[in-house]
Design a binder for these strands. Structure first.
Length: 565
RNA sequence: UGGGAAGUCGUCCAACGGUAGGACACAUGACUCUGGAUCAUGGAAUCGGGGUUCGAAUCCCUGCUUCCCAGCCA
């Protein structure tokens, strides 16, 4: 299977130029460099598809590298989840699984080299002092009093930092660049800091850890990366990336920045997602409302649909917010073609077919997928007592409501025409308890021999054989299109959608669903795509997640009617 | 008020000096045993102002708006 070519974008333009000029000997080598401090989300998927996709398109390679230089936040659990998610998305790093922490020794040697070259020094200023000395965006900084200490002294101090002789925060290693540089990142940035914390991989071996800026460029260099693709906020770091590599005279990949993905009605900040998890506002990183890959997976999204989405949204340098309906479109598109149809009633309304014999029961043939005849047919039982959707009946139908109403005839899919003859209500509350209908035996299978038409076809489930299940309906996690746009004095959680989850407990499914396996997907006709929850579903008590609704013109009409009232 | 970057249909992305195009969304119609799917049709954009050019989204000047940077986070 050949993957279609990535749409044109500015990164491909750059690579094309590099190929023409033979900048890297015709090589393309990228990497996906997550920090294992959280779960991957759909924004990472964009980066993964880009990096692995580019490598594939140019017959190159893409590494998976954990950017693990901060022992405070990183954990093995995250490493495992990230590997799972990348694999699930459909990408393969083969034998190229790397860790920045693998390079600690080498990185330290580079640091020593820089000191020896007079391009780095150990600074005894406190964190606050360093901040003061840095100056501001508009004013230059001033040089640290330790800036010009001898190379020998810095070397000695660095050695002793490494040996654990100093407290956290007592000293750092800094690059010696230019305290008056208009880019504040170039004002003698920190290269190493002391952290007396065990690292999830190197344990207690190190008590000094290299910073991102020092680590990232050199890791890229060590791995022979050609195009180091990152997000826009690192544009300011590029001069430093280049400076370090140039001073050390090592292989020099090209850093290219693109705009990270923002999706409407959700957030992409790992810090904030973690906050939702920790405060129990969602059930976990894999809550089906989360934009995480594990959340989307549990929700019923497929890897292919996410890859298609990433292709569709393109790559550019302009900050933007992609409407989440594009994501929904991508999953509908796939599931429409691949998913078996099935009948399920979410909010049951009992219907008695009064002229259908008490003990009679028959099986009717239903098509599994009209998009794919090879998926065949199945039998669904029909009997005197059925359930239909509460929404499919209106005692006083508004205009354009074509479904069941008193005196009106509709088709029960694959079954019969039925006509509503009576509405049974609770005498006290007025609540509709059940409907009495008659059926026309001549319409078996769903067609009337006399050619008469109905305006609506409805799904239904035979009461006797029905399988009861729980169904979870999801809506957007945040109410605002730009979920990060918060009112003065409030935080992002004030934008949470209080109705993002609705749990329905007495849903009635057709019996063919009885043995549905966790993770399997179905279209509940007229309702949407659903998948069996992989965490909470059991054979005795099935739990379904709604992945996405079907397009629903009636919903639009309904809202319009409501507005006109 | 320093430095870096970005502004194209409602949204996202193309067009690389030569007819502004695609996807999603929207609207209308056809078809339909899912108000699904499918098909057809339509509306819809170059941040403003100058300039160069036969010709500018693209090149130049200028203004405006938005985003990023003052972690020993990444």
């Amino acid at each position: 299977m050949s993957t279609p070519k990535m749409k044109p974008n500015f990164i491909k333009d750059i690579i094309d130029d590099d190929m023409k000029t033979d900048k890297y000997g015709g090589r393309v080598h990228t990497r996906f460099p997550p920090e294992p401090n959280g779960y991957l989300h759909i924004g990472h998927a964009k980066s993964i598809c880009l990096n692995f996709g580019l490598a594939k398109e140019y017959n190159g390679l893409c590494n998976l590298r954990f950017d693990d230089t901060n022992p405070e936040t990183e954990e093995m659990e995250y490493v495992e989840s990230i590997k799972d998610d990348v694999r699930w998305l459909g990408f393969d790093w083969e034998d190229r699984l790397y860790h920045a922490s693998d390079y600690f020794e080498q990185l330290y040697e580079y640091a020593v080299q820089l000191v020896k070259k007079g391009k780095a020094y150990v600074c005894d200023l406190s964190m606050d002092q360093i901040r003061e000395y840095r100056g501001t965006l508009t004013e230059p900084g001033k040089e640290s009093p330790y800036r010009n200490r001898s190379i020998e002294e810095s070397l000695d101090l660095l050695e002793r930092m490494k040996a654990g002789e100093f407290e956290e925060g007592a000293r750092v290693l800094r690059a010696k660049i230019d305290m008056a540089h208009p880019n504040v990142l170039m004002r003698d940035p920190t290269l190493y800091r002391i952290r007396k914390k065990d690292h999830y991989r190197t344990g207690g071996e190190w008590c000094i850890y290299p910073t991102y800026d020092f680590t990232h460029c050199l890791s890229d260099s060590i791995e022979g990366i050609t195009h180091s693709i990152c997000t826009l906020e690192f544009e300011n770091n590029r001069p430093l990336y280049d400076w370090i590599l140039d001073e050390l005279g090592v292989h020099h990949p090209q850093q290219i920045e693109f705009a990270r993905l923002n999706l409407s009605h959700t957030i992409m900040s790992k810090r904030r997602l973690l906050e939702l998890v920790e405060e129990g506002l969602v059930s976990g990183w894999d809550d089906p409302r989360m934009p995480t890959l594990s959340g989307l997976r549990r929700r019923g999204y497929t890897p292919e649909s996410i890859r298609n989405f990433c292709d569709e949204i393109g790559v550019a340098k302009a900050n933007s917010i992609v409407d989440i309906v594009m994501l929904e479109n991508s999953i509908r598109e796939e599931l429409n073609k691949t998913t078996p149809r099935v009948m399920a009633v979410l909010r049951p309304l009992k219907v008695v077919i009064i002229n259908y014999p008490e003990d009679k029961e028959e099986e009717l043939e239903a098509v599994n997928n009209p998009e794919d005849p090879s998926m065949g047919t199945r039998k669904v039982p029909f009997s005197r007592v059925l359930y239909i959707e509460q929404d499919d009946f209106r005692e006083e139908p508004p205009k354009k409501f074509f479904r069941l109403a008193p005196g009106r005839e509709v088709r029960l899919r694959y079954a019969y025409f039925v006509k509503c003859v009576d509405v049974i209500k609770d005498e006290k509350t007025g609540e509709i308890l059940e409907l009495h209908c008659t059926y026309d035996p001549a319409t078996r299978g769903g067609d009337a021999p006399d050619g008469r038409k109905v305006k609506s076809t409805m799904h239904w489930v035979s009461a006797k054989e029905a399988v009861e299940a729980e169904v979870r309906l999801y809506d957007y996690l945040f109410t605002k299109r730009d979920a990060s746009e918060v009112e003065e004095g409030k935080d992002f959680k004030s934008n949470l959608n209080p109705n993002s989850l609705a749990t329905l407990t007495s849903c009635m499914l057709e019996p063919s669903l009885k043995d549905a396996k966790p993770g399997s997907r179905f279209q509940f006709e007229r309702l949407g795509y659903f998948c069996v929850d992989t965490v909470d579903s059991t054979p005795d008590k099935l739990v379904f997640n709604r992945t996405v609704t079907l397009r629903d013109p009636w919903e639009k009409i309904r809202k319009q009617i409501e507005r006109e009232k």
